[in-house]
Protein backbone atom coordinates (compact mmCIF):
# COMPACT_ATOMS: atom_id res chain seq x y z
CA UNK A 1 0.00 0.00 0.00
CA UNK A 2 1.33 3.41 -0.88
CA UNK A 3 2.12 5.53 2.11
CA UNK A 4 -0.09 8.51 2.57
CA UNK A 5 1.61 11.66 3.72
CA UNK A 6 -0.65 13.58 5.99
CA UNK A 7 -1.04 17.13 4.80
CA UNK A 8 -1.21 19.98 7.26
CA UNK A 9 -4.73 21.21 7.78
CA UNK A 10 -5.59 23.91 5.30
CA UNK A 11 -8.35 25.33 7.39
CA UNK A 12 -7.71 27.47 10.39
CA UNK A 13 -4.21 26.16 11.02
CA UNK A 14 -2.70 27.88 8.02
CA UNK A 15 -2.16 31.60 8.42
CA UNK A 16 -3.83 33.74 5.83
CA UNK A 17 -1.49 34.80 3.10
CA UNK A 18 -1.95 38.54 2.85
CA UNK A 19 0.37 40.24 0.40
CA UNK A 20 0.93 43.98 0.52
CA UNK A 21 1.27 46.16 -2.56
CA UNK A 22 1.89 49.87 -2.21
CA UNK A 23 0.53 52.43 -4.61
CA UNK A 24 2.67 55.54 -4.46
CA UNK A 25 3.23 58.71 -6.44
CA UNK A 26 2.75 62.44 -6.35
CA UNK A 27 -0.30 64.46 -5.45
CA UNK A 28 -3.35 63.81 -7.65
CA UNK A 29 -1.61 61.31 -9.90
CA UNK A 30 -4.34 58.65 -9.63
CA UNK A 31 -3.53 56.53 -6.56
CA UNK A 32 -7.07 56.49 -5.21
CA UNK A 33 -8.43 55.93 -8.72
CA UNK A 34 -6.22 52.88 -9.26
CA UNK A 35 -6.99 51.27 -5.91
CA UNK A 36 -10.67 51.87 -6.54
CA UNK A 37 -10.71 50.49 -10.06
CA UNK A 38 -9.07 47.16 -9.27
CA UNK A 39 -10.40 46.48 -5.78
CA UNK A 40 -13.12 47.33 -3.38
CA UNK A 41 -11.74 50.44 -1.76
CA UNK A 42 -12.23 50.92 1.96
CA UNK A 43 -11.01 53.60 4.31
CA UNK A 44 -8.27 52.90 6.77
CA UNK A 45 -7.62 55.52 9.38
CA UNK A 46 -4.27 56.01 10.92
CA UNK A 47 -2.88 58.52 13.35
CA UNK A 48 -0.38 61.08 12.36
CA UNK A 49 1.86 62.87 14.77
CA UNK A 50 1.41 66.57 14.32
CA UNK A 51 4.77 68.20 14.22
CA UNK A 52 6.12 71.51 13.03
CA UNK A 53 4.15 72.93 10.15
CA UNK A 54 1.10 70.79 10.68
CA UNK A 55 0.86 71.57 14.39
CA UNK A 56 -2.58 72.99 14.98
CA UNK A 57 -2.87 76.54 16.22
CA UNK A 58 -6.07 75.91 18.09
CA UNK A 59 -6.13 75.17 21.75
CA UNK A 60 -6.06 71.48 22.48
CA UNK A 61 -6.51 71.62 26.21
CA UNK A 62 -6.63 68.28 27.96
CA UNK A 63 -4.56 66.42 25.39
CA UNK A 64 -1.16 67.86 26.09
CA UNK A 65 1.76 66.15 24.35
CA UNK A 66 -0.47 63.76 22.45
CA UNK A 67 -0.88 65.84 19.33
CA UNK A 68 -2.04 63.52 16.63
CA UNK A 69 -4.72 63.62 14.03
CA UNK A 70 -6.17 60.82 11.95
CA UNK A 71 -5.41 60.42 8.29
CA UNK A 72 -7.38 58.30 5.84
CA UNK A 73 -5.40 56.02 3.54
CA UNK A 74 -6.76 54.16 0.55
CA UNK A 75 -6.97 50.50 1.27
CA UNK A 76 -8.30 47.88 -1.12
CA UNK A 77 -8.38 44.12 -1.03
CA UNK A 78 -8.36 41.66 -3.89
CA UNK A 79 -9.32 38.14 -2.87
CA UNK A 80 -7.50 35.61 -5.01
CA UNK A 81 -9.05 32.71 -3.14
CA UNK A 82 -10.06 31.86 0.38
CA UNK A 83 -6.96 32.54 2.45
CA UNK A 84 -4.97 34.41 -0.22
CA UNK A 85 -5.44 38.14 -0.63
CA UNK A 86 -3.68 41.12 -2.09
CA UNK A 87 -3.80 44.27 -0.02
CA UNK A 88 -3.36 47.54 -1.85
CA UNK A 89 -2.38 50.66 0.03
CA UNK A 90 -2.60 54.05 -1.62
CA UNK A 91 -0.11 56.09 0.29
CA UNK A 92 -0.01 59.85 0.35
CA UNK A 93 3.27 61.06 -1.10
CA UNK A 94 3.94 64.07 1.09
CA UNK A 95 6.98 63.92 3.34
CA UNK A 96 4.92 63.93 6.49
CA UNK A 97 3.43 60.55 5.59
CA UNK A 98 6.71 58.72 5.19
CA UNK A 99 6.39 57.25 8.64
CA UNK A 100 3.56 55.18 7.18
CA UNK A 101 5.63 54.12 4.21
CA UNK A 102 8.28 52.59 6.44
CA UNK A 103 5.68 50.44 8.06
CA UNK A 104 3.87 49.57 4.83
CA UNK A 105 7.02 48.51 3.00
CA UNK A 106 7.89 46.08 5.79
CA UNK A 107 7.43 42.71 4.12
CA UNK A 108 5.66 44.23 1.11
CA UNK A 109 5.49 42.23 -2.08
CA UNK A 110 6.16 45.29 -4.19
CA UNK A 111 4.98 48.71 -5.25
CA UNK A 112 3.38 50.61 -8.09
CA UNK A 113 4.80 54.09 -8.58
CA UNK A 114 2.39 56.27 -10.51
CA UNK A 115 3.80 58.94 -12.77
CA UNK A 116 2.35 61.79 -14.77
CA UNK A 117 4.71 62.83 -17.56
CA UNK A 118 3.65 66.47 -17.24
CA UNK A 119 5.26 66.49 -13.80
CA UNK A 120 7.51 63.51 -13.75
CA UNK A 121 9.64 64.87 -10.91
CA UNK A 122 6.75 64.25 -8.52
CA UNK A 123 7.49 60.53 -8.60
CA UNK A 124 11.26 60.85 -8.00
CA UNK A 125 10.99 60.50 -4.20
CA UNK A 126 8.94 57.31 -4.51
CA UNK A 127 11.37 55.80 -7.04
CA UNK A 128 14.30 56.68 -4.76
CA UNK A 129 12.51 55.26 -1.78
CA UNK A 130 11.80 51.83 -3.26
CA UNK A 131 15.19 51.59 -4.98
CA UNK A 132 17.02 52.23 -1.72
CA UNK A 133 15.03 49.61 0.09
CA UNK A 134 15.29 47.11 -2.72
CA UNK A 135 11.52 46.79 -3.02
CA UNK A 136 10.51 45.60 -6.48
CA UNK A 137 8.31 48.13 -8.25
CA UNK A 138 6.78 49.02 -11.57
CA UNK A 139 6.19 52.52 -12.86
CA UNK A 140 2.66 53.13 -14.10
CA UNK A 141 2.42 56.13 -16.40
CA UNK A 142 -1.05 57.59 -16.25
CA UNK A 143 -1.88 59.05 -19.64
CA UNK A 144 -3.80 62.17 -18.75
CA UNK A 145 -5.62 64.04 -21.49
CA UNK A 146 -3.46 66.66 -23.11
CA UNK A 147 -0.18 65.14 -21.97
CA UNK A 148 2.42 64.27 -24.60
CA UNK A 149 2.80 60.56 -25.23
CA UNK A 150 6.18 59.13 -24.32
CA UNK A 151 7.42 55.63 -24.92
CA UNK A 152 8.11 53.45 -21.86
CA UNK A 153 11.86 53.45 -22.57
CA UNK A 154 11.88 57.26 -22.63
CA UNK A 155 10.29 57.30 -19.18
CA UNK A 156 12.65 54.59 -18.03
CA UNK A 157 15.74 56.53 -19.04
CA UNK A 158 14.39 59.80 -17.67
CA UNK A 159 13.93 58.04 -14.33
CA UNK A 160 17.24 56.23 -14.71
CA UNK A 161 15.56 52.98 -13.76
CA UNK A 162 17.44 49.74 -13.34
CA UNK A 163 17.15 47.43 -16.30
CA UNK A 164 14.22 45.19 -15.70
CA UNK A 165 12.07 47.68 -13.77
CA UNK A 166 8.95 47.71 -15.92
CA UNK A 167 7.25 50.87 -17.16
CA UNK A 168 3.62 50.49 -18.16
CA UNK A 169 1.50 53.10 -19.89
CA UNK A 170 -2.01 52.81 -18.52
CA UNK A 171 -5.22 54.45 -17.42
CA UNK A 172 -5.97 54.18 -13.71
CA UNK A 173 -9.67 54.67 -14.37
CA UNK A 174 -9.89 51.44 -16.37
CA UNK A 175 -10.10 48.26 -14.36
CA UNK A 176 -8.44 46.15 -17.04
CA UNK A 177 -5.66 48.65 -17.46
CA UNK A 178 -5.06 48.77 -13.71
CA UNK A 179 -5.05 44.98 -13.60
CA UNK A 180 -2.31 44.87 -16.22
CA UNK A 181 -0.12 47.04 -14.00
CA UNK A 182 -0.59 44.67 -11.06
CA UNK A 183 0.08 41.63 -13.26
CA UNK A 184 3.27 43.23 -14.53
CA UNK A 185 4.32 43.88 -10.95
CA UNK A 186 3.71 40.31 -9.79
CA UNK A 187 5.57 38.99 -12.86
CA UNK A 188 8.45 41.29 -11.99
CA UNK A 189 8.42 40.07 -8.38
CA UNK A 190 8.33 36.43 -9.53
CA UNK A 191 11.57 36.97 -11.41
CA UNK A 192 13.26 37.59 -8.09
CA UNK A 193 12.18 34.39 -6.46
CA UNK A 194 13.50 30.93 -7.19
CA UNK A 195 11.41 28.81 -9.46
CA UNK A 196 9.93 25.79 -7.70
CA UNK A 197 12.32 22.85 -7.83
CA UNK A 198 10.89 19.58 -9.00
CA UNK A 199 10.52 17.63 -5.77
CA UNK A 200 12.58 14.64 -6.94
CA UNK A 201 15.55 16.79 -7.94
CA UNK A 202 15.53 18.68 -4.67
CA UNK A 203 15.67 15.48 -2.65
CA UNK A 204 18.42 13.82 -4.63
CA UNK A 205 21.90 13.90 -3.17
CA UNK A 206 23.97 16.16 -5.37
CA UNK A 207 20.82 17.85 -6.65
CA UNK A 208 20.62 21.59 -7.06
CA UNK A 209 20.94 23.57 -3.83
CA UNK A 210 18.07 25.83 -3.00
CA UNK A 211 18.70 29.37 -4.09
CA UNK A 212 18.60 32.11 -1.51
CA UNK A 213 16.10 34.81 -2.42
CA UNK A 214 17.73 38.08 -3.42
CA UNK A 215 16.08 40.19 -0.77
CA UNK A 216 17.54 40.42 2.73
Amino acid sequence: MASVHSKPATNGANPLVALKILVAGGFGVGKTTLVGSVSEIRPLHTEEALTGASQPVDNINGVEQKTTTTVAMDFGRITIRDGLCLYLFGTPGQDRFWFMWDELTQGALGAVVLADTRRLADCFPAVDYFEHRDIPFVVGVNCFEGSRRYQPDQVSSALDLDDGTPVVLFDARERDSGKQVLIRLVEHVSERYPQPEPVAAAQQPGGALPKRPLRQ
Binding site: I183, V186, S190, Y193, P194, P196, R215
Partner: peptide, 20 residues
Protein backbone atom coordinates in the same frame (compact mmCIF):
# COMPACT_ATOMS: atom_id res chain seq x y z
CA UNK B 1 2.26 37.17 8.59
CA UNK B 2 4.08 35.27 5.91
CA UNK B 3 6.83 37.49 4.56
CA UNK B 4 7.44 37.47 0.81
CA UNK B 5 10.91 36.03 1.42
CA UNK B 6 9.32 33.11 3.27
CA UNK B 7 6.85 32.26 0.56
CA UNK B 8 7.19 28.51 0.24
CA UNK B 9 7.90 28.80 -3.48
CA UNK B 10 6.59 30.73 -6.40
CA UNK B 11 3.41 28.69 -6.53
CA UNK B 12 1.68 31.41 -4.56
CA UNK B 13 2.85 34.09 -6.97
CA UNK B 14 1.67 31.94 -9.85
CA UNK B 15 -1.67 31.63 -8.14
CA UNK B 16 -1.80 35.39 -7.68
CA UNK B 17 -1.04 35.93 -11.37
CA UNK B 18 -3.70 33.48 -12.47
CA UNK B 19 -6.14 35.07 -10.05
CA UNK B 20 -5.44 38.57 -11.34
Amino acid sequence: PIQPTQLPDSHILKEVLDGL
